[in-house]
Write a protein that binds this DNA or RNA. Structure first.
Lengths: 253, 253
DNA sequence: CAACAAATGTGAGCACTGCTCTTGACTTTC
DNA sequence: GAAAGTCAAGAGCAGTGCTCACATTTGTTG
């Protein structure tokens, strides 16, 4: 039962379909460049058409409207970020939970600083008049948080995740949605740690956003790299990760 | 030496100046409504002019361009947020550091959920082609982080701020900018705690942004209020605040 | 009070945007 | 070869930011 492609496409692609797919690829590529250069809200279909060497109305043959192109670029960006995070995490041994946590956070930050406009499309204020279609974006859009949750779950199963202490040990009610996800992923980590993982994830996002969006003021901190490393260490602590138990010993930074 | 007004305005305002100021106020008010309704990037000077009952080119007599209006709205929003945060913090006794921390975080979240578009203008992805003029926005834009830092500094002076333990006790190099601010505010809190305060601030921002911008997916968490309270408690822990030493005892909620 | 000058409002116009529609040309298929 | 399907072109509509010449209002001053 060969079910590789996304949609039920039983017949092989005709030359027309191939050319069409190539044109759409070109449009997405040009759109990605415009997006990276001028930001999401300034993305212009007419400018993309000009760069494509075609009249503006022609691109509407391939892309329904501007929102459709934004959705394509959104998925594209989510997948590029997800790929880089997955690669960075997989480059370390599975049992090196602290190292993998650092790699995940650093990979997100690295991509965000390299692609600030695309990062803003994913995690910034929503583009006016644009609502991302959940049925197409939730998949790629949850890859990083899934990776983080899988990482914490692995640490929990290995007994390397400290239980949350203090006031933070409050039970947090989870919606059926997340409960289903937890069951679907086969996560063993209890609710409290899941909530803490969510806090760690949003905190990581907040620290990166401040740096990417320039909220830190002109240059408040002399060494943003070191500050981020400091934040990552504190967040690892917050997540309950214990670096002393890492197989590779102390991380070589 | 009466130096109340902002700029060196020695003479009393003429009726012309008063009418002009009133018109600018109207423009800002209408702009605020449009901003709250349709978002920052969709703010249209022509639409504001229509609502003002005037032809579009007339508003350029009062506002240099769209960026100028955005700057006015930015300052307006920063000040409204700052006012609400200050009021929420001042409503609790000065020595109730944990309570004040909770009040600060809750006030930010409340304002952000009530004014998502304006929150997005302040803390979301930058509006394309718009760069906030630092000399006009840094003042109002730093009110909340100043309030947080003052809060932590007060707790530190009162001996109620635990020193950061674990790996997080790393010294973080501060730029001359922040060092000057620290001296100007008369902060006693050491560098490590300042860096931790920055992490707490960005983490708070991240948690609120995820909720405001709908990054949590459809409705992943059933009770966002409780989740946020959970996050706030964890962040207070992270900041080093000790609720058990509060004068009012356990916070009611 | 009248005259002047400054401030303000008007409307046309330019260049840009998203998007629709008709027309003509081209390619694939029957 | 004819029919069907696909595609690009160009005109056009409504909207945007912004400029400019012109007209009007308005406060001040001789």
């Amino acid at each position: 039962m060969p079910q590789n492609p996304s949609l039920p496409s039983t017949k092989p692609p005709t030359p027309r379909e191939r050319a069409r797919a190539r044109t759409i690829e070109d449009i997405v590529r040009l759109g990605r460049e415009h997006l990276a250069l001028h930001g999401a809200a300034a993305l212009s279909l007419r400018a993309v058409a000009r760069d494509l060497g075609v009249v503006s109305s022609a691109v509407y043959r391939y892309v329904e409207n501007r929102e459709e192109l934004l959705t394509l670029l959104l998925i594209d960006a989510y997948n590029e970020l997800g790929d880089e995070v997955d690669a960075a995490v997989a480059a370390l041994p599975e049992a090196d939970f602290s190292g993998r946590f650092n790699a995940l956070g650093s990979a997100v930050r690295r991509w965000a600083l390299r692609e600030p406009a695309r990062y803003g499309l994913l995690f910034g204020s929503p583009v006016p008049g644009y609502r991302a279609p959940a049925e197409r974006t939730t998949g790629p859009g949850t890859r990083v948080i899934y990776a983080l949750m899988a990482l914490l779950d692995g640490a929990y199963r290995a007994g390397r995740l400290a239980a949350p202490g203090g006031r933070a040990a409050v039970a947090v009610p989870l919606a059926a949605d997340l409960e289903r996800i937890r069951a679907g992923m086969g996560l063993a980590v209890p609710d409290g740690l899941l909530a803490r993982g969510a806090l760690v994830w949003t905190s990581l996002f907040g620290a990166i956003s401040f740096e990417v969006f320039g909220q830190y003021g002109a240059d408040t901190f002399a060494a943003p790299e070191e500050l981020f490393a400091h934040h990552l260490a504190a967040l690892a602590d917050l997540a309950g990760l214990d670096p002393s138990a890492d197989p590779a010993g102390r991380r070589p930074e």
